[in-house]
Amino acid sequence: MQVNENFEPVIVAFCCNWCSYAGADLSGTNRLNYPANVKIIRVPCSCRVNPMFILRAFQKGADGVIICGCHPGDCHYTSGNYFTRRRITLLYSMLDFLGIERNRTRLEWVSAAEGAKFADVMNQFTEDVRKLGKNRRLEDLRCRKQ
């Protein structure tokens, strides 16, 4: 597959308020770089992320979507990230069925103390999505900006 060096993927990151959003802040406080392609949306808990939001992002032209939550067992709301884990697993099988590359969607656990991990994950994910190229299968051309 041809890799377009100039391709800049659009990446949406859903981060839970208590762990991953704070982890993202920490990587900023520590001045750890990751690509500007990543745009973060704050949600109270990773379990607030409806799989519909992920599909919506792909429909609107996102090339990758990553969901970050507290480590299993550390959820601020006790059990939210367990629901997330199950829902994303189901979403994976649906995306597999549709023929959408698995690497475009990722679920990661990043705690409030893991600023370095957050930057690493985002660097890695952006590279993975860059290799996959533009999301053509799920993008709705009617949504594309003229």
């Binding site: 109270p44 808990c45 379990c47 607030r48 409806n50 799989p51 059990s79 629901f83």
Partner: peptide
């Protein structure tokens, strides 16, 4: 507490 688990369920 506003976690939002129910909104997705």
């Amino acid at each position: 507490q506003g976690c939002g688990a129910c909104t997705v369920a």
